[in-house]
Amino acid sequence: MADLYAKALDSERKALWATCRLKGLAKDTPERQRIAELDRLIAEHKAKKAG
Results as ranks from 00 to 15, higher is better:
19 T>M: 06
21 R>E: 14
25 L>Y: 13
50 A>H: 10
49 K>N: 05
49 K>G: 02
27 K>R: 14
45 H>L: 08
37 E>R: 01
35 I>R: 00
13 R>V: 09
25 L>H: 11
22 L>Q: 13
1 M>Y: 04
44 E>Q: 13
23 K>P: 00
1 M>I: 05
19 T>G: 03
6 A>H: 02
3 D>S: 08
20 C>Y: 00
22 L>E: 09
36 A>C: 05
42 I>M: 14
1 M>E: 14
46 K>W: 03
48 K>G: 01
47 A>K: 14
40 R>P: 03
45 H>Q: 12
26 A>L: 10
1 M>K: 05
3 D>W: 02
44 E>P: 00
30 P>G: 07
27 K>E: 15
28 D>N: 15
19 T>C: 01
7 K>A: 09
47 A>H: 10
3 D>Q: 04
49 K>A: 13
19 T>A: 00
51 G>A: 13
33 Q>K: 13
25 L>Q: 11
30 P>M: 08
30 P>N: 09
50 A>K: 13
18 A>P: 01
19 T>V: 02
11 S>G: 12
51 G>I: 03
41 L>G: 00
4 L>N: 09
26 A>W: 04
16 L>I: 10
25 L>N: 06
47 A>G: 03
11 S>A: 12
20 C>G: 07
47 A>L: 12
30 P>F: 12
1 M>W: 03
35 I>V: 15
44 E>N: 10
33 Q>D: 00
22 L>D: 12
33 Q>V: 01
51 G>N: 07
11 S>K: 15
2 A>F: 09
39 D>R: 04
8 A>N: 14
48 K>D: 10
22 L>F: 07
43 A>C: 03
25 L>K: 13
33 Q>W: 03
46 K>T: 02
50 A>T: 10
16 L>R: 10
